[in-house]
Amino acid sequence: MSTPTHLTKTITDPEEAMTHSIQTPVLDRSPERRGPAEPRPRTRASLVSQAKELFTGLGPGIIVPLVLMLGLVAAAAIPAALAPSGPLDMNPAEAFTAPGTAHWFGTDESGRDVFSRVIHGARSSLLIGVLATVIGLGTAVVLGALAGLGTRAVDFGVSRFLEVLFAFPGLLLALLVITILGPGVVTTTIAVGLSAAPGYARMIRSQVLSVRRSGYVEASIVQGKSRAFIVRHHILPNVAAPLFVLATLGVGQAIVWASSLSFLGLGATPPDPEWGSMLSLGRLYIGNAWWLTFFPGLFIVLSAATTTLLGHGIQRKLKDK
């Protein structure tokens, strides 16, 4: 009924797509591997040089966001090791201290260290971003695959269902989920994931359909290959790569979305630090204490941009190969 929407036009040539699956392309290129098969002693230097090659092979388009991403993941994994104080430690007497040596990112209205809160907030924010994307993509994969691979009736049903979800304002969907389940990190995650799902599902469906209608799949059918074979060898590899890219793009968008819900008063529950709710609370003090909005905002943009760049980098890498 409607034309498929190609968000990412990566796999356009099925012939090319057939030949590669997503594995690290770097190692094959490494000249050492191609050189004489003389076993080398595994020294520190060789490890370093191998790592170096690995990185140069990846190119700055991936390395820079990868390093940033590792930093964020570290903050999410071991915040206590990085932050000078606990996220809830407060001292009202020190409220609204400007950034300085004592508090790198200043303090908030209850005298909590903003730097520590931002570090501790990484976990909730990244979790919202990743889980929402997983929920959204997971739902989408099921729906999209059903529509793309199922019988005509199933496709019709699922497509109409998607259309209804699509026509339903995404924010309203999120609002309803949150008002029904009550606000909190989990609810926000579900709300953001569900409102992103129809978009993903449609892209997946069209991707599946375009692969399925391609010449080489038809050739496989003529050759009498089983359905499972075709799904495994043609459809999955072709759908998985753009899916992965979509996922990296989606994480950033999910974090931004969640922060908007926080702004509307439907975000994470206090006092847990979460960038979106920190940002929306700090917005009220934007004229008095800029640091309350600047730093959480910076980290939202940073993490969203990082995942996006990483996605682009991988996308390009796949294409170059």
Partner: peptide, 10 residues
């Protein structure tokens, strides 16, 4: 505001 509750919680 919710920050009052946060201080009281603390």
């Amino acid at each position: 505001p919710v920050s009052v509750f946060e201080q009281f919680q603390h």
